[in-house]
């Protein structure tokens, strides 16, 4: 039982992380029917944004009040990246055949990873470590440090932060989408972009907002990841991005609640599989394989996901 609870906590933590990233895939897909493959890189750049903020202004300090400022730094970096990629790379391809944006996304993904790897320690006026190895992520009071024990279950402080962040973000997101003008504009565009344009909604702006919104959540996820793993690296976006995409599909891509549910389910399945799949195919070494198996099965047998989504014929 304790093991089960422990895996439950682990799964929820992992799942919250996936969910935060998955929202980015789903929001963008819902509006422009584009799988933004490079979204994992936005998450990675968010983490580096947070680290840079810390190194620039607070190097060596550990006060928890630094955390919000780091998150803001992460958001600036992530949102900047996402908006720029939309403007420069995706927008010109909006009417191109489907192959074009997907290949562009792969290109952006490689480009951003390399940009960080090669140039992080060469940024002028800053004394950053080289990103060719893993870089230690700052440890702050309250959110990192000794784990909390509840009975026999160990809960990392960063896990509490991650799950908490998801809860807060989910509430704010709900409010944004359903109660603000911009959010309702997004809904309208996702239903029918042409009509929305005729009704005077600035579709280009809504698309930028979608990219930015995804980036904001990815930035928070980047900080969470850094706190949990104690380090970050330029490659962290690839697998995390794929997993989050799986989560988005699992929940029904285009469906925001679905992304959150999908993320949590995927996280739980992954940690439970580590614990409960017997024999040689269990354990941590195969968990990524199981995640991909789930991805494929969902895409093939239930492409509309668990919660269902408007499935456009993607021929």
């Amino acid at each position: 039982m304790d093991q089960f609870l422990q895996q439950l906590v682990n799964g929820l933590t992992l799942g919250s992380l996936y969910a935060l990233i998955a929202v980015g895939y789903t929001v963008v897909y819902g509006i422009v029917q584009l799988i933004n493959f490079a979204h994992g890189e936005v998450f990675m750049i968010g983490a580096f944004g947070a680290l840079s903020t810390y190194l620039l202004f607070f190097d060596g300090q550990t006060g928890v009040w630094i955390l919000p400022i780091m998150i803001i730094g992460a958001m600036i970096a992530a949102v900047g990246t996402a908006v720029l990629m939309e403007r420069v790379a995706y927008r010109p391809l909006r009417n191109a055949p489907r192959l074009a944006p997907l290949i562009t996304a792969i290109g952006i993904s490689v480009f951003l990873q390399e940009l960080v790897r090669v140039f992080y320690d060469r940024i002028p006026f800053a004394d950053f470590p080289s990103a060719k190895q893993r870089i230690p992520f700052p440890q702050l009071d309250v959110v990192s440090g000794t784990a909390v024990q509840i009975g026999d279950v160990t809960v990392q402080r960063s896990a509490i932060f991650t799950i908490g962040a998801l809860v807060v973000c989910a509430i704010l997101l709900w409010y944004f989408i359903n109660r603000t003008r911009l959010g309702r504009g997004m809904l309208a565009v996702s239903q029918d972009p042409d009509t929305a344009r005729l009704m005077g909604i600035n579709v280009d702006r809504i698309i930028v907002v979608a990219f930015a919104l995804g980036a904001v959540l990815a930035a928070i996820a980047g900080v969470s990841q850094g706190l949990q793993n104690n380090n970050i690296d330029f490659k962290m976006g690839f697998i995390a991005g794929l997993k989050a995409f799986t989560a988005a599909v699992l929940g029904g891509i285009g469906n925001i609640q679905g992304a959150v549910v999908g993320g949590l389910v995927l996280g739980l399945v992954e940690s439970m599989a580590t614990q409960y799949v017997p024999g040689q195919f269990g354990g941590g070494t195969w968990k990524d394989v199981w995640a991909f198996v789930i991805l494929i099965l969902v895409l093939v047998f239930r492409p509309q996901g668990l919660l269902g989504a408007r499935v456009v014929d993607r021929a």
Partner: peptide, 16 residues
């Protein structure tokens, strides 16, 4: 059952 971008992702998954 799948086509387009979804198929690309499925093949990526198989590759991994």
């Amino acid at each position: 059952r799948v086509s387009g971008d979804y198929l690309a992702i499925v093949t990526l998954g198989f590759g991994e």
